[in-house]
C-alpha cells in the first residue's frame, strides 16, 4: 500500500470504530448507525461490481438478483429448514457462484456488452421467481421470521453489534479485492480493459478471467444478501428488482470505477442520500438518479474519488508554482 492509501485505510478503520459511539451521543444522529449498516451491506455488492466494471470493463445488471439469491437462500434455509445461518450463507454463496458461472460463460465469451444484456434478462427472471414461488419465498407478501445470527456463541443484536459485523465483512472484502488488484490477476484485468487483443496475445486467458471476476462479484453480492436477510429478518421481492441493480451500478459510477475507494464512497453517499432526502420523491426517485448519472457522465466521468484526488494533487502541486497552469 502507498502511504496515502495506508493513511486513508487507517482513517477509515478509526472512523468506523468510533462511529456508533459518536452517533449515539445525539438522538437526531442515532439512526445513522442503521443507515451505515445498509451502506456496508451495499458496499459488499459494489466492491465486487467495481472489480467487474472498473477493472474488467464489464457491466452487470443482475447484482440485485445475486443479492437476492443470497438473501432468499439464507431466509429459506434458516426459516423453513432451521439451518445454521453461517451454513445457509455458504450455501447461498455457492448457488450464486454456480449461477453466475452458468450465465457468465456464454455471455463473456462474446466481445461487447453481452453481459449487460444477459444479466438484464437474468435479473428479471430471478425477480419473477421470487414473486411467483409463493410456497418458498412468500411471493409478493414477503418472507418473514428469519432468525438472527450468532457469532462465537453470542447473538448479534443491537445496531452497534450489527454495524461492526457488517463493516468487518466490508473491510475484509476491501482488503482481499485490493490484494487481487495489486497482483498478476489485477494487472491482467486492467490489461483486458485497455486492450483485450494484446492481453490475449500476452498469454492472458481473457474470457476465463472475466468469468472469474463475475463469479467473485456474485459471491460478494450473495454474502451481502445473507447479512441483509438476517439483519432485517423480512424479505420482499421489491428489494431485489432491476431498479436496485441500477442503483448498485450508479453507486460505483458515482464514486469512481477505477478505484475501490470510489465504490465505498459512492455507496455510502448514495445510501445516505437515498435514505434521508430522496424518500419524498417516491416514484420519481428514478428521475433523480437519472439526473445524477447524467451530471456525472458529463462533468465528472472518472467519479468523485478520482476527481477529488486529482483536485488535491493539483492544488498541492500548484502552490509552489502558481503559474504552472492546469493541463
Amino acid at each position: 500500500m502507498s502511504s496515502r492509501e495506508k493513511t486513508a485505510f487507517v482513517g477509515l478503520t478509526v472512523f468506523l470504530a468510533v462511529f456508533p459511539w459518536v452517533s449515539a451521543l445525539s438522538r437526531s444522529f442515532s439512526h445513522y448507525v442503521d443507515v451505515m449498516i445498509f451502506a456496508g451491506i451495499f458496499s459488499l455488492v459494489t466492491i465486487g461490481l467495481s472489480l467487474l466494471m472498473g477493472f474488467a470493463g464489464q457491466i452487470s445488471l443482475a447484482q440485485a438478483a445475486f443479492f437476492g439469491i443470497g438473501a432468499y437462500g439464507s431466509g429459506i434455509l434458516t426459516g423453513h429448514f432451521h439451518w445454521n445461518p453461517w451454513a445457509a450463507m455458504l450455501a447461498g454463496v455457492c448457488v450464486a457462484a454456480a449461477v453466475a458461472w452458468v450465465v457468465g460463460v456464454p455471455a463473456l465469451r462474446l466481445k461487447g456488452h453481452y453481459l449487460a444484456m444477459a444479466t438484464l434478462g437474468f435479473g428479471v427472471i430471478v425477480h419473477i421467481v421470487m414473486n411467483e414461488e409463493v410456497d418458498w419465498t412468500g411471493g409478493p407478501s414477503g418472507l418473514g421470521g428469519i432468525p438472527g445470527i450468532r457469532l462465537a456463541g453470542r447473538k448479534i443484536s443491537g445496531d452497534a453489534a450489527w454495524f461492526y459485523l457488517v463493516w468487518a465483512f466490508v473491510l475484509a472484502a476491501f482488503l482481499f479485492s485490493r490484494h487481487v488488484l495489486h497482483s498478476r490477476v489485477g494487472r491482467a484485468l486492467r490489461a483486458i480493459h485497455d486492450d483485450e487483443k494484446a492481453a490475449e496475445a500476452m498469454g492472458v486467458p481473457v474470457s476465463s478471467l472475466k468469468v472469474q471476476v463475475f463469479v467473485y462479484s456474485a459471491v460478494l453480492a450473495a454474502v451481502a444478501g445473507s447479512l441483509y436477510a438476517h439483519y432485517v429478518s423480512f424479505l420482499s421481492p421489491g428489494s431485489f428488482d432491476l431498479m436496485w441493480s441500477i442503483r448498485f451500478v450508479l453507486m460505483v459510477v458515482f464514486g469512481g470505477m477505477q478505484s475501490l475507494w470510489g465504490a465505498l464512497v459512492g455507496t455510502v453517499l448514495l445510501t445516505f442520500v437515498g435514505n434521508e432526502w430522496l424518500q419524498v420523491f417516491a416514484d420519481f426517485e428514478i428521475l433523480v438518479y437519472g439526473g445524477i448519472l447524467l451530471v456525472m457522465a458529463l462533468f465528472v466521468p472518472q467519479g468523485l474519488v478520482v476527481w477529488m484526488d486529482a483536485f488535491f494533487r493539483r492544488r498541492s502541486r500548484l502552490q509552489p508554482t502558481p503559474s504552472d497552469g492546469g493541463s
Binding site: H179, V180, R184, V185, G186, A188, M202, G203, V204
Partner: peptide, 16 residues
C-alpha cells in the same frame, strides 16, 4: 509484468 502472466500462476485466492 503482464508479459509474465503465462509463466506465473497465483490466482484469485493466492492473491487475495
Amino acid at each position: 509484468m503482464v508479459g509474465r502472466h503465462a509463466r506465473t500462476r497465483a490466482g484469485f485466492w493466492a492473491a487475495g
